[in-house]
Design a protein around this nucleic acid. Structure first.
Lengths: 233, 233
DNA sequence: CCAAAAGTGTTTCCCATACACCCATGG
DNA sequence: CCATGGGTGTATGGGAAACACTTTTGG
């Protein structure tokens, strides 16, 4: 079998930055490592690329292994390739950015990997360059969520507008005007009124909406404007 | 020396999508391969990642080798990792997106690599998945140039507003209103009037501007709006 | 009846758009 | 003096932002 005449073949790893939202805080699914290397420390969920496996397939495999979920929102973040990023051996790692509904994950799988949902405000020290990956993923979320209706990926099937507003306020660390936010969202035509109300409320029950999936697919790449003009990245 | 107990180490390649603008057309720097594999066919400029070399350093090395330029605009595009993307051997390739002033490149280096500037309208068939890389890079350029003052990277040191408008029209394949474009650009405060005029003109000579580099650095990541609101990706 | 949260309405003001007009230059 | 392209001015409309008010619910 023919091969290239180049000496350097390298381990290719994948690391997944997995976001969730519990109604109040933005969270990441992190692993308290009960295996080597760096046993006992915190890290992202990762794995190695196999010989006969597409890169995206490997990412889906690793995400499924930890969360029990398929067909979730995943995009490539960036590839990290500093020589010394992994002290064990030269490794290039492709970072993947995932958004899931925090209620959908399989608790068994998460527990089996010794993984926990950690608020973005309380991220512990992470191994290797994982902190840099998290920071970049956070910027990417802030960037894209301002322009595209990304936030729905973090919501349950049915949700209220105030819940969605809380998500945006968590992403950007700022408060938003209730009335303008609601109008902006409804004007996108992305919301379908389910006719139901949120029963978990001590006051006026908010309307439960679901996502208009067809329109969401069609218009996802258009530029929208989910944040006030006064907001700057 | 300790190593990971994983069997698959893979060649890591880099491929560079290099954009230039000649005043009329957007162009790519492509290679007519006079070496194996796929000798005689067209491809992007690429190379392999070395053992003791950071990924970004490798990209800069490859770009320097072809153009003779350092400190140009480079960003990671995406990593391509289909199993069969390279028929010679399993190879993962990191795509890099570069913007250069077409007049600055070293013609000797370009000639030595048998490279040519090809208009984006006339891209020939490319090897492997390079056509996909080009398409993605093109989308990235269209995306970012609408939001950030990226276009200046493709301009010479001194340029006129009509020249810049021609660039945007080439990127998006549409005509723009002269007067609104000019106002929008000037209102950013990114342009410094050099006091000189473009002498290569048969009619009224346009003002030559240069980029306000400090402001450009500071404000690059803010959201701007260089395209009409009616424009959708 | 009251407090807290959800929903709807209104006014104002800025800015993007779509125009028209004037200026400079070479032939 | 005229054709071509560069530069400046202006009216208008839509939409974002900043507000006030009403409605629903549980206690």
């Amino acid at each position: 079998m023919t091969r290239y005449n180049h000496p350097t073949r390298i381990l290719v790893a994948l690391d997944c930055i997995i976001f969730g939202f519990d109604g109040e805080f933005l969270k990441l699914l992190l692993i308290k490592r009960n295996f080597e290397p760096e046993k006992g420390k915190w890290s992202l969920m990762g794995g190695f690329l196999n010989e006969e496996e597409d890169l995206e397939v490997a990412a889906a495999r690793i995400l499924y292994e930890l969360t029990g979920l398929r067909d979730i929102y995943v995009e490539q973040l960036q590839t990290f390739g500093k020589v010394d990023r992994d002290p064990v051996e030269r490794t290039v790692s492709v970072g993947f950015f995932a958004l899931i509904n925090i209620d959908d994950h399989d608790p068994e799988a998460v527990k089996a990997h010794n993984a926990y949902w950690i608020s973005l405000n309380d991220i512990p020290e992470l191994i290797f360059d994982h902190a840099k990956m998290v920071e970049l993923a956070r910027e990417r979320l802030r960037y894209k969520a301002a322009l595209h209706p990304l936030g729905f990926e973090l919501m349950p099937e049915k949700f209220t507008i105030p819940q969605l507003q809380k998500l945006y306020e968590a992403i950007y660390g700022m408060t938003l005007d209730r009335r303008n936010f609601s109008r902006k969202l409804l004007s996108t035509g992305l919301l379908i009124d389910t006719g139901e109300k949120n029963e978990n409320s001590a006051t006026k029950k908010a309307t439960l909406y679901k996502l208009n999936r067809e329109k969401y697919q069609d218009k996802f790449h258009e530029f929208w404007n989910f944040m006030p003009d006064t907001f700057l990245i």
